[in-house]
Deep mutational scan, measured.
Amino acid sequence: QVALSRTQVCGILREELFQGDAFHQSDTHIFIIMGASGDLAKKKIYPTIWWLFRDGLLPENTFIVGYARSRLTVADIRKQSEPFFKATPEEKLKLEDFFARNSYVAGQYDDAASYQRLNSHMNALHLGSQANRLFYLALPPTVYEAVTKNIHESCMSQIGWNRIIVEKPFGRDLQSSDRLSNHISSLFREDQIYRIDHYLGKEMVQNLMVLRFANRIFGPIWNRDNIACVILTFKEPFGTEGRGGYFDEFGIIRDVMQNHLLQMLCLVAMEKPASTNSDDVRDEKVKVLKCISEVQANNVVLGQYVGNPDGEGEATKGYLDDPTVPRGSTTATFAAVVLYVENERWDGVPFILRCGKALNERKAEVRLQFHDVAGDIFHQQCKRNELVIRVQPNEAVYTKMMTKKPGMFFNPEESELDLTYGNRYKNVKLPDAYERLILDVFCGSQMHFVRSDELREAWRIFTPLLHQIELEKPKPIPYIYGSRGPTEADELMKRVGFQYEGTYKWVNPHKL
């Protein structure tokens, strides 16, 4: 086992960053958080920038500027975001240094004079007029057009580079997404736009490419001749908990499936790229999406959770019991969808996408189930092999396979070949997804960000279904809070070829 401390991990990262040409360590950078008073800024962006600063992973002359409508001070920003920093008493001095680099400007999102004030403020910072500028839009999409237009007109660096990070949702359907994309691309070049999907920053999602293309053993079996089906799962054990009003506007397909799960599907299904260059990788992902037809209604199961009468606390409440959810809402909190990649490698292999709230566990994984062994000599005792990439929690890679049961006879039983990170790298604290992705933006690497043509294809696949749901308002199937979801989803999976045995229990190697 390799035991690495946080300091050692960050030392390795620093070495990698400083050796590259793309990370300008000594240049002045300004990180501007648009929507600095909001939840995302408070819980994710400010803490992430602090962790990067604490670990010495930001360029040395980096300033952080918050911008929002609320009249706040840096002290206010500190008060609301610091509880999420997880700072230790030993880091007190470092924390003071961090907040000394912070400033805040209040202004409207659609007022040109406010942006001119913001620009004057940035120019007044040390070497601010020639600094590289990175704008993070932690804002609702309704203000994107006004904000990007004003940034472009008043706040661009004339000497350094300018980059803009856009948070999902990128529209509600193909038409609104196209409108937003066309607007942003009329102001910024594609190499300046970073559409963030934080799932692409997760260690195991990034590991998929290495697993596939750096190991000879997987190449020959990664196709329709050997793989019976692919299941991509995202499960949350909690409901909307008072935030249903926002969720109800989008629903589970827009929230998770059309982005996170579809991105994971691309990494499983794509061909080997010409290189690890950002556009070479994204070219292959677009090719996969172009091979997927629009979702067919007979390959869809929609569910909505109801309270568990035997549960406790939140578990007793259904989705419609959330006071922020519109009365009688038919918005799905669970969806199972089957897609097919219609190309030579994957023809006929079902890709089953499942996601839901208020389920029995927290889990995100990719599961490849292989065909049955031909010419069975073990009297149907063999179960199908599976390769599982567990994204969260407890990152893991393992192969479910058959071995001989101890004893006199040739009785096979299920076991696993474990390729888990935790076994080799004991207690290594890896940077989280937002840390990686923000560092990628500083480096100018777009590999783990969504390109406009990729986004367009993703919406093309799901828009007809979303429009049909909005028009017909089908009643989702009720499922109990804390269950596996509607049984109809299991029946759909069985119908397209997935075999669920229920006889195997994964042993978490992190707890051995």
Score class of each variant (00 low, 15 high):
321 D>C: 08
450 V>R: 02
382 C>E: 07
258 Q>D: 04
473 K>L: 08
487 T>S: 12
380 Q>C: 09
287 K>W: 03
486 P>R: 01
467 H>A: 09
446 Q>L: 07
421 Y>T: 15
444 G>Y: 00
383 K>A: 14
302 L>I: 09
486 P>E: 01
499 Q>T: 11
465 L>H: 04
315 A>K: 08
284 E>L: 05
439 L>P: 05
265 L>T: 08
336 A>N: 07
287 K>N: 12
331 T>E: 12
377 I>Y: 15
493 M>L: 13
307 G>F: 03
381 Q>M: 13
413 E>C: 07
467 H>R: 15
371 H>W: 04
439 L>I: 04
506 W>C: 10
477 I>M: 08
313 G>E: 04
271 E>Q: 04
501 E>D: 10
503 T>N: 13
397 V>S: 11
313 G>P: 09
333 T>G: 02
388 V>I: 13
366 V>T: 02
460 R>C: 02
494 K>F: 12
402 M>R: 06
450 V>Q: 15
498 F>T: 13
310 D>T: 13
453 D>L: 03
328 G>Q: 12
260 H>S: 15
360 N>T: 05
306 V>E: 06
397 V>N: 04
413 E>H: 07
509 P>W: 07
481 Y>F: 10
265 L>I: 08
304 Q>R: 04
291 C>E: 07
496 V>M: 12
301 V>A: 08
477 I>E: 03
473 K>G: 05
317 K>N: 05
281 V>T: 14
463 T>G: 15
428 V>M: 13
268 V>G: 01
330 T>L: 09
368 L>Q: 00
412 P>C: 15
375 G>Y: 10
481 Y>R: 13
270 M>A: 04
403 T>E: 07
503 T>Y: 11
407 G>E: 06
467 H>P: 02
379 H>C: 11
472 E>T: 09
506 W>G: 13
346 W>V: 02
396 A>Y: 13
319 Y>W: 07
447 M>L: 15
290 K>M: 06
313 G>V: 15
346 W>G: 01
296 Q>K: 11
510 H>D: 12
434 Y>K: 10
342 E>P: 04
456 R>D: 06
419 L>K: 03
361 E>A: 12
406 P>A: 14
508 N>H: 14
316 T>C: 08
327 R>T: 07
343 N>L: 01
272 K>F: 05
507 V>D: 12
447 M>H: 15
299 N>A: 08
459 W>V: 13
259 N>Q: 14
449 F>P: 00
354 R>T: 10
505 K>F: 10
491 E>P: 03
414 E>W: 15
313 G>I: 09
419 L>M: 15
438 I>L: 14
362 R>V: 10
263 Q>M: 07
415 S>G: 13
304 Q>S: 03
270 M>R: 01
417 L>K: 13
432 D>M: 08
334 F>K: 02
278 S>G: 13
456 R>L: 10
275 S>N: 04
452 S>G: 11
318 G>K: 03
257 M>N: 01
342 E>S: 12
328 G>D: 13
430 L>G: 15
404 K>P: 15
314 E>Y: 12
367 R>S: 10
463 T>R: 08
366 V>L: 12
299 N>Y: 07
499 Q>E: 11
488 E>S: 04
310 D>H: 08
330 T>I: 07
329 S>T: 09
318 G>M: 03
333 T>R: 01
346 W>A: 00
334 F>L: 04
282 R>G: 03
276 T>N: 06
490 D>H: 12
470 E>H: 10
282 R>D: 03
465 L>C: 09
343 N>K: 03
331 T>N: 09
457 E>C: 04
353 L>R: 00
370 F>C: 03
431 P>N: 14
424 R>Y: 10
400 K>Q: 13
303 G>K: 00
496 V>K: 12
425 Y>T: 15
360 N>F: 01
